[in-house]
Amino acid sequence: MTAVVGHLRGFVRFFRDVMGEDAYRKYQEHHAASGCSSPPLTEREFWRDKMDRQDANPGGRCC
């Protein structure tokens, strides 16, 4: 039973990574590691900036 739960958790983590749910966490880690002197964006600012950049440069999105 624990093996099934472990696999399910792994799948959920993978799905979240693919969907980009952890993008803000990764941004925070990168910001802290890069030694940037400016304060990090808030989560709301981060997602707004991300969506604005995607709208300006749609690339390979289907929609």
Score class of each variant (00 low, 15 high):
57 N>W: 10
58 P>S: 04
14 F>V: 08
26 K>I: 07
10 G>S: 05
34 S>A: 15
35 G>F: 01
19 M>Y: 05
21 E>L: 11
60 G>S: 15
1 M>E: 14
18 V>W: 10
62 C>Q: 14
21 E>H: 09
42 T>P: 00
18 V>R: 13
51 M>E: 14
29 E>G: 02
60 G>I: 11
4 V>G: 06
31 H>M: 00
20 G>V: 07
41 L>C: 01
55 D>F: 09
8 L>W: 07
35 G>V: 01
17 D>F: 09
5 V>K: 06
16 R>L: 10
20 G>D: 06
26 K>N: 09
24 Y>G: 01
14 F>P: 02
15 F>D: 07
45 E>M: 09
44 R>G: 03
4 V>D: 11
30 H>W: 04
14 F>M: 11
57 N>P: 02
45 E>A: 14
59 G>S: 15
44 R>C: 04
30 H>I: 00
20 G>S: 09
45 E>L: 08
13 R>S: 14
55 D>I: 11
53 R>M: 08
58 P>T: 04
29 E>T: 04
20 G>N: 07
38 S>K: 15
48 R>K: 15
43 E>A: 10
1 M>S: 15
38 S>A: 15
57 N>S: 11
55 D>N: 09
11 F>A: 14
63 C>K: 12
58 P>E: 04
18 V>E: 10
61 R>T: 05
7 H>L: 15
42 T>H: 03
32 A>H: 06
59 G>A: 15
33 A>W: 01
41 L>I: 00
19 M>F: 09
29 E>F: 03
46 F>V: 02
30 H>D: 03
30 H>C: 01
4 V>S: 12
9 R>P: 04
46 F>N: 02
41 L>Q: 01
33 A>S: 08
33 A>P: 00
8 L>Q: 06
18 V>G: 06
35 G>L: 01
7 H>G: 13
52 D>R: 15
32 A>K: 08
43 E>W: 08
62 C>T: 13
49 D>E: 15
55 D>G: 04
49 D>W: 12
47 W>Y: 14
63 C>Q: 11
18 V>H: 08
28 Q>W: 01
56 A>V: 11
40 P>W: 02
8 L>A: 09
15 F>T: 10
47 W>M: 02
32 A>G: 04
33 A>F: 03
25 R>G: 01
37 S>I: 13
32 A>M: 07
23 A>V: 00
63 C>S: 13
2 T>Q: 10
50 K>E: 05
39 P>Y: 02
54 Q>K: 10
45 E>F: 09
23 A>W: 01
31 H>K: 00
44 R>E: 10
56 A>D: 14
8 L>E: 06
7 H>N: 13
33 A>N: 06
36 C>F: 07
63 C>I: 10
35 G>S: 00
3 A>K: 12
43 E>M: 12
59 G>Q: 13
36 C>Q: 11
2 T>M: 11
16 R>D: 08
2 T>G: 11
6 G>M: 08
13 R>E: 15
46 F>Q: 03
53 R>Q: 10
8 L>R: 07
3 A>M: 08
24 Y>A: 03
10 G>H: 05
48 R>H: 12
28 Q>M: 13
35 G>I: 00
14 F>S: 14
10 G>Q: 04
26 K>Y: 05
